[in-house]
Design a protein around this nucleic acid. Structure first.
Lengths: 122, 122
DNA sequence: TTTACTAAGAATAAGAACTATTCTTAGAAT
DNA sequence: ATTCTAAGAATAGTTCTTATTCTTAGTAAA
């Protein structure tokens, strides 16, 4: 594993956040200024394909990458765009119960207003 | 309402399908060959903003537009990409119960293999 | 019934988010 | 040492979508 790859993996795994490729790129650039955006994309894809990290697709916006590979869902703040992990116990059971047919996987994203934006109350 | 707008609305509302802007464009082009793709995008956006039709965002693929504006969720076939509406009674109640905080809306997409693709069994 | 205004259309350019290509280089294997 | 491979850098290309510019069709006031 190369220096660039270590840096990318470290950033995604230890940020505790959901980061876009662009954000990871700028973060890597602090340590390795010569890094190219394409390299970041390629490595993020490789890591996501090998399940070291997870890709979270967003409609109409850049995909996020996160270190949390345990099964979970997401909530996104409609004000600031910040994404947080949520765990809804028994959701899979509930869906399986409701749907006849085999569910391979599912993506659930809740749209809400995060505590920080609620406090700003504008 | 113009000829182009009538055509777009008619196609989306009466297709019973989930169509991309590109698909709508080609469909309109049958009737009005001079129509421009940008015009289709603009009108689809307007109709979606005024809730006459619904936009269904897909991560990493073109958005779909559909005529069904009643609350519902979606299932997408991982083989052929065909999307179908699904209604999961009480899902909202279930989520509200599980989450503390106000849910504004949510997007759920199930990934499955549709009956047609299951029959092809390859 | 001209004149002016507005909204939409056509054509095209621009933008964002990727993805692929080409060329080079650094490290491992023989 | 030589070869091979995988990755990086730079850059071009693709896809989906939005914005811009210019023109035109339809309405509304003078």
């Amino acid at each position: 594993m190369t220096k660039v790859q270590k840096a990318i993996l470290d950033i995604v795994m230890n940020s505790g956040q959901h980061l876009s490729a662009e954000q990871v790129y700028w973060s890597v650039k602090q340590q390795i200024p010569t890094v190219a955006l394409g390299t970041v994309y390629r490595n993020l894809n490789q890591f996501a394909d090998s399940r070291l990290i997870r890709r979270v697709g967003r409609a109409g916006a850049a995909d996020f990458f996160e270190g949390n590979t345990l099964p979970h869902d997401h909530a996104i703040c409609i004000r600031c765009g910040q994404m947080t992990d949520i765990v809804i116990p028994k959701l899979k059971d509930f869906l399986t119960e409701q749907i006849n047919g085999h569910i391979i996987s599912f993506d659930l994203t809740l749209n809400y207003i995060c505590p920080r934006c609620t406090d700003k109350n504008d």
